[in-house]
Design a protein around this nucleic acid. Sequence first.
DNA 1: GATGAATGAGCCTTCATTCAT
DNA 2: CATGAATGAAGGCTCATTCAT
Lengths: 196, 196, 196, 196
Amino acid sequence: MASTGTQRRGDTRQRIQDVALDLFVEHGYEKTSLREIAERLDVTKAALYYHFKTKEDILVSLFADRAEPLDALIAWGESQPNTLETKKEFLRRYVEQLKDSSRLFRFVQENQAEMRDLRVGETFRSRVEATVGLLLTPAPSLADRVRVTTALLSLHAGMFALRDVEGDDEEKYDALLEVSFDLLTAAHEGDRGQGA
Amino acid sequence: MASTGTQRRGDTRQRIQDVALDLFVEHGYEKTSLREIAERLDVTKAALYYHFKTKEDILVSLFADRAEPLDALIAWGESQPNTLETKKEFLRRYVEQLKDSSRLFRFVQENQAEMRDLRVGETFRSRVEATVGLLLTPAPSLADRVRVTTALLSLHAGMFALRDVEGDDEEKYDALLEVSFDLLTAAHEGDRGQGA
Amino acid sequence: MASTGTQRRGDTRQRIQDVALDLFVEHGYEKTSLREIAERLDVTKAALYYHFKTKEDILVSLFADRAEPLDALIAWGESQPNTLETKKEFLRRYVEQLKDSSRLFRFVQENQAEMRDLRVGETFRSRVEATVGLLLTPAPSLADRVRVTTALLSLHAGMFALRDVEGDDEEKYDALLEVSFDLLTAAHEGDRGQGA
Amino acid sequence: MASTGTQRRGDTRQRIQDVALDLFVEHGYEKTSLREIAERLDVTKAALYYHFKTKEDILVSLFADRAEPLDALIAWGESQPNTLETKKEFLRRYVEQLKDSSRLFRFVQENQAEMRDLRVGETFRSRVEATVGLLLTPAPSLADRVRVTTALLSLHAGMFALRDVEGDDEEKYDALLEVSFDLLTAAHEGDRGQGA
DNA sequence: GATGAATGAGCCTTCATTCAT
DNA sequence: CATGAATGAAGGCTCATTCAT
């Protein structure tokens, strides 16, 4: 029943994913070597190849594991009436997923150059696109498109940008949501201007 | 008199910088090899080392060349009264610099993982910090801090995020500025809320 | 039973050491490249790195393998009474080790410049120092110190210096020992002079 | 007319030799790069090539400059009667030359591996051989040959071996000479044995 | 379920050397 | 007398990957 301390079994695949994500986030994908991952896990490089076909495959698996909940959320969003309140609720739930996979989102944020080539990027981008579509009004102005895009950008990059600001994470997430709501609301009401 | 064809003069250093930036943006810093740069320029790798001490040095030089105008702008901002109009004007000028060095800013945006280790990142971050400070009101709320941060984030990442949207660049920059102004204005007036 | 021809087993590590020492002696440490070692062994450079962390590491391993017997000899010397006969016996045994590792000692002799920087040098020097200490009388005169030092020097460099002299190795070793004994004896009896 | 402090002229060739020897002694011949030499002199690498045809040429020139006095000494030795006193006087003068060119002799001592390939080695070895011949009796025993060889070895390597011993250089040279005389004397008188 | 041994390609960097100016 | 610019070769090293065991 009790696990024998350091000796875990069967979960090697998951431990690889965990350590890999740590290192990918810490040093970047390119600069992280399989040797490093293997050493951190105290296994050989060859062992990694037993569980994953390639280095990229490890990364792909990290996204695959987190794709389902996101897809579910998007499906939910698409099934709801296109009201402001729906959109706000969508963002609230979106932030919850961000919190759950904060390392992964940070990885995306910091490795955009790699995300472009690595196939996995494509699937990620299409989800963001779907999300933007969800939050837009029909026939939006360019500025409103920017508002929605910025709202999402803020949620994605915000925690990282606020790293050096005092306050606990919960407060920060609330503040990010508040600003996102502002942007969303302005976009929802159409571009009647704001300074007027 | 005018050199034709291969046009190789005393401009090799600059040509290296130019090609390097192209490739750094295209593939990322890590994945760009000096062999690639050299080949594109039709010189040997050793020639690169005549002009730059290390690979990182090429990158550093790219930033060094663009640091002065940015510092001048920040100095200008700090010399002005802390009014909303000043801040707007600051952003307008900031966007001009973004346009001038769009490749470099895109590089920063897409290679954040590398920016963390590469020393050059430090000098960049401190400038962003100074800029944020400039745009903030004294004793800002957390939400207002987010607004200012988001405004800048939007300018930095916006062009990239709008890549697939129709419309020419000038329009996009205008839209980005408009949204940034909104955020700035809200932050300047204090967080009386907007959706309430 | 006996492997034939290419005979590649679990002995690669040792084969690397062997070939490396050959080349280090033949061309010097600096001028010997890993490519050369690899080619001679018909493996790739990368294979060398599977067995040794760095080029220096190969050298270090060469010394490590021979350190034990030498340390044992020194320990033996230190456990004996400080008589002339002990010292002679020590030198006799010392010469035996020299014979066993003649290539390594020749390497040391011919690559002193490298020995200074290469860390491994330090451990070697300290052993020589211990040996000198063993052979000295308490409070020796400078000349006696020179005698002992020269005795060792002669053993170390002698075979090499006598390369072009006729006679077989065994004879030469005997002659070297004889002269070393003279020097040792003179040093042991104190510097009352010799020509008197 | 007066040299302007740091700005010397005409003597560049000599300054190159000087700095080169310093570095060759400090790091070894192989590990010393022309870049290093040029930097230390605050000239370009190309400047070195104005004064010397190759890197090896710098080394050759260092030996050439010191060859004459040595040849003169050997010629003197060969012109004298083959007495013990002559040999002693020869060694005394030899030590004087060692003192004058201590850096060069140290270089030889520490870069024997390179001395073997570098042509210049040949000319050096032949001089040592001539010197040994001078100091030997006709039809010497192997042990006597060792004595003479060791005497020279001691002078060459002694200063270096005594580096960590207290005492000033003059004292050390005297002690080295004393021991060399002993060896020489024993060799001169024939090997009637000494410890017997 | 994992290891030991090895590979081939490629990396950044340095070197001695050349030559037009 | 010397420099600026460049080259070709090579160096040590690391990487993702493979495969027999």
